[in-house]
Design a protein around this nucleic acid. Structure first.
Lengths: 160, 160
DNA sequence: GTTGAAAGCATATTCGG
DNA sequence: CCGAATATGCTTTCAAC
């Protein structure tokens, strides 16, 4: 899909201000177009599959689930893609990522209320045929907009 | 914070249906409470910091940025937290995660239009004092709700 | 493809149980 | 604390450019 600087500015702002109450009007003011143009562009980006969804970011610890673990696993190359999809079905698993490498090619993120929840995840992953190379406690995580878009933003608001 | 099964059901549905057009009314119907209760709960979850934000999920490849890489790095233990924050400031870096382990304790996710963009990231990370243990192409990624909440959902809709 | 205004609709508030 | 109705204001639409 062809995306121009207006699209990039919108995507960047959406990532920078990922609030539920971030309105089209506010985007429109910051990039100096009308709010109907913002609406047009967002709808097109969604239709074309660039803007896929809006994921709620949950602080599991505050919500009462203190265990947050990353498993680094190895899946046989040919089964890797299938196992990535299978692993997301394991209870307490919240994210899986497929890498390109030969070993340690699957990352599985899990959340649990208790240590037993996490222990059960290791058993389930093992039962799927995944070799678990390591498990790490996740501490902090930061996200931010894709810069290539951000650098093109014409932000008219001086007070930032 | 104290979260009950209504909160959990709402969080689970928000994650399962992370659409912009997923309304409070729809949540209300599915878990059999009024939409004002849904609104009350969501506002409280946001105020208490459980529901932090709504991150737009962008398909970078479709948007015209084909390079999507995960760097596995090692930061000196004492500087780890600071470097996690520094790394997110590097151009084209979109996500950083701090792990607990002694080595390979920092994951840095980067996106770029060209191979040069990615090469520049390695140089910037190196300049920060990070040892880069490996870089992997990211292929596929799946996410899904935290099950402990999901299992408590009283979903009244039979047609699913 | 963009705009402004007006209609349509989701969300926030208010109040009564 | 929950739920129904009201008020607010955001999103969408549409005629015109």
């Amino acid at each position: 899909m062809e995306t121009d600087s207006t699209d990039h500015a919108i995507l960047s702002l959406l990532q920078a201000e990922s609030r539920a109450d971030f309105t089209h009007d506010e985007i429109a003011e910051r990039i100096d177009v009308s709010s109907s143009t913002v609406n047009n562009r967002i709808q097109r980006l969604e239709a074309e599959g660039v803007l896929k969804k809006f994921d709620p970011v949950i602080d599991y610890e505050t919500a009462g689930a203190p265990h947050h673990i990353l498993f680094v696993c190895t899946a046989p190359i040919v089964e890797r893609k299938a196992l990535c999809k299978d692993a997301i079905e394991v209870p307490n698993v919240v994210n899986t990522r497929e890498l390109l490498t030969g070993s340690q090619n699957l990352h599985v993120e899990a959340v649990g209320m208790t240590a037993e929840d996490i222990e059960a995840v290791t058993e389930d992953l093992d039962a799927l045929g995944l070799e678990i190379n390591g498990s790490e406690s996740l501490r902090t995580e930061y996200s931010r907009p894709f810069d290539h878009f951000g650098s093109e933003v014409v932000d008219e608001s001086a007070s930032e």
